[in-house]
Amino acid sequence: MNENTLLLDLITYFGKFPIKEGVLKLFNRNATLPGYDELKQVINNMETHSLVPDIKDFACGVNEQVLKKQINNFSGIYLFIDYGAIAIDKDEIQRENGSFNIGVTVAVPFDHENRDAIESMLLAQQTLNLLIAIREKMKGDQKCGVAWMKDLTFPHDISPWEHKDLNNSTGWTMLFTKKGINII
């Protein structure tokens, strides 16, 4: 893995699961930041995409205001990738070893006022099944030697996920640690 693209790799790896049109919605501006158009072109030219076609939208990041604006426009099932701390430890011979926390969530906006408990359970089962489908594809990629998957931890945690501020979304999330990163 090229450590200079750690965050961008989240978009290019996980962007293959939802339908391509949902991933391309991330690019909604004529931005002038270096790399913006190049990343959009990479996504647009991906040969492998729409691996889980029931997932219609894609969100990635940690900025809650940006995510809220984006996810509040979603009406169907979406994939949400977030990330956390990077931890750097030293081993017994003083080599630095980094790890990076990643959350992979499949969710759907849910109107709690106008739905009953059975609808809630059905949506929970559907989003869990889709998350498990992604997990199985990830494990297959790891076994096939996909470089980005090399140091991703299995097992991991899978938990129910609710977020009122993100379009009343409900679903499931997997938490992973990617080890062996080098940020120097």
Rank of each mutant, 00 (worst) to 15 (best):
Y36G: 04
D37F: 11
E38Y: 15
L39D: 02
V42N: 08
V42M: 11
V42L: 11
I43V: 13
N44G: 06
N44Y: 11
N45G: 05
N45K: 05
M46E: 01
E47F: 02
T48Y: 10
V52H: 04
V52D: 01
D54H: 04
D57W: 09
D57H: 13
F58C: 03
C60D: 03
C60W: 00
G61P: 00
G61Q: 03
G61T: 02
V62S: 15
E64S: 14
Q65C: 05
L67R: 04
Q70M: 09
I71V: 15
N73M: 14
F74Y: 12
S75D: 09
S75P: 04
S75V: 15
I77Y: 00
Y78K: 07
L79I: 01
L79Y: 00
F80V: 10
I81A: 01
Y83L: 05
I86N: 06
I86Y: 03
A87H: 15
A87F: 11
A87W: 08
A87Q: 14
A87V: 07
I88M: 15
K90E: 15
K90C: 13
D91Q: 10
E92M: 07
E92L: 08
E92K: 05
Q94C: 09
Q94F: 11
R95Q: 10
R95Y: 15
R95S: 10
R95M: 07
E96V: 15
E96C: 13
N97Y: 14
G98S: 08
S99T: 15
F100W: 11
N101T: 14
V104E: 00
T105N: 03
T105I: 14
A107S: 07
P109D: 02
F110M: 14
D111P: 04
H112G: 14
E113S: 15
N114G: 05
R115V: 12
D116F: 01
L122N: 08
L122S: 06
L122V: 11
A124M: 10
A124R: 08
A124P: 00
L128G: 02
L128Y: 12
L128F: 09
L130P: 01
L131N: 09
L131T: 06
I132G: 02
I134H: 06
R135A: 02
R135S: 08
E136T: 15
M138S: 05
G140W: 14
G140R: 10
D141N: 05
Q142H: 08
Q142P: 09
C144V: 04
V146I: 10
A147M: 12
W148Q: 03
K150C: 05
K150M: 05
K150S: 13
L152R: 05
T153D: 09
T153W: 00
T153I: 13
F154N: 03
D157E: 12
D157I: 02
I158V: 13
P160G: 08
W161K: 01
E162P: 00
E162V: 09
H163E: 14
H163M: 13
K164F: 10
K164N: 12
D165R: 08
D165V: 09
